[in-house]
């Protein structure tokens, strides 16, 4: 009943993409299926162009599983973003998730990772050679 009354028009993506200076911060809040991952990828890469971003942080701390497709998506985002002039750091991979990914043979050579958002900023500052805001407090 409720489903017919409130049909999800275009299911909102449970991902928030925020801008912080020249960085984009994408937080994934729940598990995404393959279609949603695809949309996420398209949206994010689109935004990099619009906002003229130099760095992208993808926070996956809420994910209990990162399967091979999700892994592939993250890697593709990193590669495409690089072609468009932005470096990508994936942050917040949980211990169990990390080990499962490795066990499944995920190829992550081209992916930069960091413990959490804060570390991700630092890592980006190192590799993208651009700080999010020249005078942002608390960020080096």
């Amino acid at each position: 009943m409720r489903d017919t009354e409130q049909p999800p028009p275009q299911e909102p993506l449970r991902v928030s993409i925020l801008t912080q200076g020249s960085y984009l911060i994408a937080s994934i809040h729940t598990a995404l299926d393959d279609g949603q991952l695809h949309r996420f990828r398209t949206d994010l890469l689109e935004l990099i162009g619009h906002r003229r971003s130099r760095g992208v942080i993808i926070d996956v701390a809420a994910l209990d599983v990162i399967d091979s497709f999700a892994c592939h998506t993250l890697r593709t985002i990193a590669q495409v973003a690089r072609l468009r002039g932005a470096e990508t750091v994936v942050v917040g991979i949980q211990p169990d998730v990390a080990f499962t990914m490795v066990k499944l043979g995920a190829k992550l050579e081209s992916m930069t990772t960091a413990l959490d958002l804060e570390e991700g900023f630092e890592r980006l500052a190192g590799i993208a050679a651009v700080t999010p805001l020249p005078d942002a407090p608390g960020l080096r």
């Binding site: 991979i93 490795v102 413990l115 890592r123």
Partner: peptide
């Protein structure tokens, strides 16, 4: 070796 990889995924 896998432990090394997994640690790297966590940024260490």
């Amino acid at each position: 070796v896998r432990t090394v990889d997994a640690s790297r995924l966590m940024g260490a």
